[in-house]
Write a protein that binds this DNA or RNA. Structure first.
Lengths: 231, 231
DNA sequence: ATTAGAAAAGGACATATGTCCTATTTGCTA
DNA sequence: TAGCAAATAGGACATATGTCCTTTTCTAAT
């Protein structure tokens, strides 16, 4: 993780992400942090030092279950807030947030929030809209998790991870976890996930290549994914 | 549903539920509505005319899935907000909210919110804390739905429904749905729910009596429920 | 008391998934 | 290049759950 203090860069990102309308044009106390692939933005048990706004890249958000396993909550893309639930309502951090590829986040420090924004209706509305959106999408994901079997959910997971197509017209999985970790996050066993992968290979939807999964039939995969559970 | 306009009653309930601190002492534009058992507070597709605050009784909140089935989201007890997600972020109503027993709700009308509260930081903070709490508990419920089999989830469901113990020391299920509806809301089949009930009867946890389920071993039921999924 | 419809109960068979374990492959380090 | 640990793959057996259907019980109306 690297901190960047260049005020012009920060100002430009704020403007680009509509944050100037909320915080006003002359705000100070904002930081820009960049993270490398797989770097943790925050982990369970952490105390957050502010709110984080994802302004570029993608994040994987997952939680730890009582049985020690993990469970994927969502992938986040800009603009997304990290830490709003825990910080505002003063709950302990219970989700892990991990960079998928390089990411940049603006950090709204605690002082900025407490001293200047706690009574700013524009900022509070921003929070409300963000929380409502998360509640809405988590409700959808929760329903789909209960309703759909692993095949559909894995299809959605893959679609959340594919890189741009290479020159052969195929999309390639961005490997962010081992298959064991992926199985855990999808709430299934490694054994069963492998059955699902095997079946998708037999159906010509996927192919293994050098330890990666290539998507041969993206249309079919989207069909299987239905509503994107993890977006 | 009955509307009650007595200002003294409304003022007393506001004070009792801490709403005077938020809205101020001289607020007008609030309504009190009482609902009978099984009456709908709102249904999918409705347009809400304000925010609802549950001040007495209990509500069952469930959603409709793409396959036409329902799924239980939570039981709500006072103080709980209804309609905050949909109204604030202008999403369509996608949950059904149904009274379990007699209920009373204060309705904060649209005019009151738009004209007097939209820039009231105390009110906005109230919203934020409510949304954060819902997000936190839905995340827990989502995880448990994925992690625990029907037996545990049904145990939690029953514990959310029991009335006070009768003189024989047993708790009795408040029947709010047919078993078919209950199975749907728990995301399982009627057949499987009946297997689970059969097993719990064989284990001496439950007994059937005149079409109702009596809880014989509440300790065991709480053990099975673990974290209360639906509270 | 009877009847009809709804709700409940459960058989039979199927699929989805979990657990436990062994074998093979891959990747990294020396 | 070799060795070792981790990751991957899959067999065998088990449990959880779904689907489809028939039978039984319950409830409400007459």
């Amino acid at each position: 993780m690297q901190k960047i203090s260049d005020a012009r860069t920060i100002q430009a990102l704020m403007h680009k992400n509509g944050l100037t309308d909320i915080f006003g044009p002359d705000v100070t106390g904002m930081e820009l942090r960049t993270y490398a692939d797989r770097e943790m933005i925050c982990s369970m048990g952490d105390t957050l030092d502010g709110l984080y706004v994802l302004v570029s890249g993608k994040l994987k958000v997952y939680t730890l279950l009582p049985n020690g396993k993990t469970m994927l909550l969502r992938f986040s893309r800009p603009p997304a807030l990290i830490g709003d639930v825990e910080w505002m309502a003063q709950y302990p951090v219970k989700n892990n947030v991990e960079a998928v590829g390089a990411c940049s986040l603006l950090v709204i420090t605690r002082e900025l929030i407490l001293e200047k924004q706690a009574n700013n209706p524009a900022f509070l509305w921003f929070m409300i809209q963000n929380l409502s959106h998360k509640l809405y999408t988590l409700g959808n994901a929760s329903a789909m998790n209960l309703l759909y079997p692993v095949e559909n959910r894995f299809a959605s997971y893959l679609l959340s991870l594919i890189s741009e197509e290479n020159s052969t017209g195929q999309a390639e999985e961005i490997r962010t976890s081992t298959l064991t970790e992926t199985a855990e996050m999808l709430g299934t066993s490694y054994r069963h996930l492998n059955r699902v992968i095997q079946r998708l290979i037999q159906e010509g939807v996927l192919v293994r290549k050098k330890g990666r999964l290539l998507i041969l039939n993206e249309i079919k995969l989207r069909e299987l994914a239905g509503n994107h559970l993890y977006n």
